[in-house]
Amino acid sequence: MKVTDVEKLQQIATEVRKNIIEEVYNASSGHPGGSLSAADILTVLYFYEMNIDKDNLKEKSRDKFVLSKGHCSPALYGVLAEKGFIEKESLKTFRKINSPLQGHPDMKKVDGVDMSTGSLGQGLSAANGMAIAAKLDGIKNRIYCLLGDGEIEEGQVWEAAMSSSHYKLDNLCVIVDNNNLQIDGKITDVMNGQPIDEKFKAFGFEVIKINGNDISEIINAFDKAKEVKGKPTAIVAKTIKGKGVSFMEDQAGWHGKAPNEEQYNQAMKDLVK
């Protein structure tokens, strides 16, 4: 069920954001900042772009997604709940003992999680493996991988980038959630990975730069990426960390911290607006 209406997608993204806050608040831990920055990208992926539904979840031919920045699991679970792959009520078990919703995504525990991630820098390599497997099997699906802008400080990301273009993986689309903040501060202060777009270009990617919190721009970017032949695409998405929750926006401190009750109420109020 493809949703093409931008307003409808914005509404879903707001629901995903509420889910994120709900999860992190109930767990009293987790990573809201980077989850909120990526909420629009994940919403467009799962409701507009990817060929994925409850009916084809087990099929080899469906599209796949690797959340390389695995700590943003609240966003992934949040969108999977909106898709109906997991019960919305189960979001309250996030990070609790015996919950399938582990702190970082576990592919063996949750339908719709395509790769277990958490240790940063590994997801793009795994996505490459999926893209290669699809080509070997003659399957026309697409593989998506979301990287954090702090995450790309890991050397393996660039080993993988080299490999994506070496193997001409035009069925692969990388999205960099460029919210400009990592745990210790601005990425440009901690370890400057800019210019991100030029780096991916140099590694042989088609690069598209967008505002990653603008639904229309995200849609257009995915549409364009599909037309690229003979090389992989990287969408460098400028986003705001904590997007949608007033006091979390652009604050490194909200990378891995849960709101208290008062902050939870404020966040939910912000998201109703």
């Binding site: 080899k60 690797v66 592919m107 395509d114 790769m115 820098g121 590994q122 997801g123 390599s125 795994a126 996505a127 490459n128 493996g129 999926m130 893209a131 290669i132 497997a133 699809a134 099997d137 050397g155 393996q156 080993e159 993988a160 080299m162 490999s163």
Partner: peptide
Amino acid sequence: QDMMSTAAGLASCG
């Protein structure tokens, strides 16, 4: 490192 994670991706697809 890339080789091992790529192998994981391939294995995840059967």
